[in-house]
Design a protein around this nucleic acid. Structure first.
Lengths: 239, 239
DNA sequence: ATTGTACGGTTGTCCGGACAATATGTCCAT
DNA sequence: ATGGACATATTGTCCGGACAACCGTACAAT
């Protein structure tokens, strides 16, 4: 068993047993080095693994602390996480970070069926609960198809509703996918998280029947701070 | 921008552009070191991040290769992943790895409302698709309540069905949670994956109305090889 | 009272090196 | 042909060190 894994198990025990409660500050890396007589890179290997689980939180210049319990959301509201959070003690707030036109990146262009580099509106929002950002919502729409969207969006503050009322879009279908992703630098900065931290990625591709897709959306949910639940009466028999 | 992050972006571009197709072997770590004049630890930092995204696969003694596309599952079948995979080209197989009695670990005892260390049945299975293990199913049941479960399970090969027919359990409810986890050593070994790789963790707590919970279950889904999708006609207005 | 500066402590990044563990292929003895 | 010993290549683990980036505090200057 590798050293860093032994160390990780040891720290996990301290946390799960309650000896180190949520918010408790862990010893500094160098202190752990001397206590267990291992090198700092070994300590960091263990710590990073714990951090990506959400079990601890690390802050440069401050120290390492035991993580808080995850926020629970109803799985039935999985695809409208904002709505799901309305049941929490505090109300989530929606912050619009920017609404600009940008040349379509490859992944966006591919999904929307337009040439790479064609102008698209990029709308970035984040949902904050008790001054802690929990998820990021990024929408992309072709400028050619929805001219002036950036000015009309402010009225309703809803993408789908704006398309419906101002551009006559109806009969909407959405293809959605959920998977695990790793935060890049920009996402991590906006979520007050760390590069490389795992997160849930929910992608939307919106279209009307028999038409090209016209909206591509990413919802990035902090994996260390969010989980989903559901209560169901008919269990499966296969497993 | 940190060196390892620049390097990571560079490698990502090679893969997403198609210059390095799925299965293509990447240059060895030391080769990349000399090519970009960085240290090996920097290369490894970038590689590990790519690996946890599922973008590349690393094999000790062999090398590093571009990852294959993720397996897509219907989200409606999210909580019976085995059933969801039946739609794939190949049929998944269920392997029973062990069925023994063990003293209940803390997390299991807490959920089942029994003292830590009391005997529980532990059933470990894994689901394999084309000789690649995709998910792990672990069930725990109190021995005191279901004596002889280990012998009766083999008849039906289904936990819920066995409880129903042999112990008269009916009116079942299940509380389920989905979140992100990181593979520990045992899980990684059983999934042919790596310690520290992110995965989806789906936990089940089974009970009948007005009764103690009597089954605790973990389903661990490889995050680098699985994703879920759903197609829906009524989009949300809030986001 | 406010602002700027300096300092100590902590985590983040990066280096160079050493040896272990693992997979493949080669060669030899059987 | 077959199996075992060996060499080779690759990633995994671990070390020790150096400096950067960041945070809070204390103190001085304004």
């Amino acid at each position: 068993m590798p050293l860093y894994h032994q160390l990780k198990a040891l720290l996990t025990e301290k946390i799960e047993s309650g000896e180190w409660p949520p918010g408790h500050q862990l010893p500094a890396e160098m202190q752990i080095c001397s206590e267990f007589e291992v090198s700092r890179s070994t300590v960091r290997q263990a710590m990073q693994s714990l951090a990506s689980q959400g079990l601890i939180e690390r802050h440069q210049g401050l120290g390492t602390f035991v993580g808080r319990p995850k926020v629970a959301n109803n799985l039935m509201e999985l695809f409208s996480p904002y709505k799901g959070m309305l049941q929490a003690d505090a109300l989530p707030t929606q912050e619009i970070q920017k609404l600009t036109t940008v040349p379509a990146p490859r992944s966006v262009a591919t999904h929307l069926g337009i040439p790479e580099g064609e102008d698209v509106y990029e709308l970035r929002r984040r949902v904050v609960l008790q001054s802690e950002p929990l998820l990021l919502v990024i929408n992309w729409l072709p400028v050619r198809r929805f001219p002036g969207f950036d000015k009309k969006f402010g009225e309703l503050n809803s993408v789908i509703r704006t398309l419906n009322r101002h551009y006559g879009v109806a009969g909407i279908h959405q293809h959605k996918e959920i998977e695990i992703t790793i935060l890049d630098q920009e996402e991590a900065a906006e979520l007050d998280s760390k590069v490389g931290a795992p997160a849930l990625l929910i992608t939307y591709l919106t279209s009307t029947v028999g038409d090209e897709p016209f909206e591509y959306r990413k919802v990035i949910v902090r994996g260390d701070r969010c989980k989903y639940y559901v209560h169901q009466a008919e269990p499966e028999f296969l497993v």
